[in-house]
Simulated scan of single mutants.
Amino acid sequence: MFFVRTANDRDIEPLRALLTQSFHATYDRFYGPAKVEELISAWHNQAEIKRRIHLKGGEYLVADDGKRIGGMAFAAMSDKLTKTAILHQLYVHPDQQRQGIGRDLFAEIETCFPDAEILRLEVEPQNEGAIAFYTAHDFAEVDRTRNCGGPDSGIEALIMEKSLR
């Protein structure tokens, strides 16, 4: 059984491994392994994971069974949008999916921002499983971007939002 808790520095390497496996399992078919490796190097290196764990106004959660991390979620208050929290990441290890880990991480992360009225995220338009998950959790598409994850990324994404009120 996995329990949701706040991530700490001891989780950095297991998180990097989880994100690497999850990213390849999810995105290789859309972008190819070389592009996915490039994204992992930029977004999921040890320094970036540590920065996010310690980010003021952020919450970095892990699902932990005492032996391994089966999933993670990271969200933070937006510095550009009023009363909006951004769900930057929600990943479950490929061999642990469909066991409620994503649901449990999501249930916890949406309670972490009492001042937020909206929870927003970006999702790959071809990632039907993720879109179905978010739709089942009351998200709706509100926009699209060609720069998922940051300026000039060139990666398309749906922007989805959920009211927290």
Rank of each mutant, 00 (worst) to 15 (best):
F2Y: 13
F3R: 15
A7I: 08
A7E: 07
A7Y: 11
N8M: 05
D9F: 07
R10P: 02
R10G: 08
D11I: 04
E13M: 08
E13S: 15
P14N: 12
P14F: 13
A17T: 11
A17D: 13
L19C: 11
L19A: 03
T20R: 01
T20N: 08
Q21H: 07
S22H: 02
A25W: 09
Y27F: 14
Y27M: 05
Y27E: 00
Y27K: 01
D28S: 13
R29N: 03
Y31L: 15
Y31Q: 15
P33H: 12
A34R: 12
V36I: 00
V36W: 11
V36G: 02
E37L: 12
I40A: 03
S41G: 10
S41K: 10
A42R: 04
E48H: 12
E48A: 11
R51H: 11
H54N: 14
L55P: 00
G57C: 01
E59D: 06
E59H: 08
Y60E: 10
L61M: 00
L61N: 06
V62A: 02
D64I: 15
D64L: 14
G66T: 10
G66W: 07
K67W: 03
K67Y: 08
I69G: 13
G70Q: 08
G71L: 06
M72V: 14
M72S: 05
M72L: 01
M72F: 00
A73R: 02
F74A: 00
F74H: 06
A75M: 13
A76F: 01
A76Y: 12
K80D: 13
K80L: 14
K80I: 09
K83F: 04
T84H: 04
T84Q: 14
A85N: 07
I86C: 11
I86V: 15
H88C: 01
L90C: 13
L90S: 02
Y91V: 07
Y91R: 04
V92I: 12
V92G: 05
P94D: 06
P94H: 08
P94K: 05
Q96V: 06
R98A: 14
R98M: 13
G100P: 03
I101F: 05
G102K: 08
R103F: 07
R103T: 14
L105V: 07
L105P: 12
A107V: 09
E108P: 12
I109H: 08
I109A: 06
T111C: 05
C112A: 14
C112Q: 06
D115P: 03
A116F: 05
E117F: 07
I118Y: 10
L119S: 08
L121C: 01
L121F: 01
L121W: 01
E122Q: 15
V123L: 05
E124T: 06
P125V: 07
P125C: 10
Q126G: 03
Q126C: 03
N127A: 01
N127V: 12
N127H: 07
E128R: 08
G129N: 11
G129Y: 00
G129F: 10
I131N: 09
F133S: 03
F133N: 04
Y134H: 02
Y134F: 11
Y134I: 05
T135V: 00
F139Q: 05
A140V: 05
A140F: 09
V142T: 10
D143V: 01
R144G: 09
R144M: 00
N147G: 00
N147F: 00
C148A: 02
P151Y: 06
S153P: 02
S153A: 09
M160W: 04
E161K: 06
K162L: 02
L164M: 15
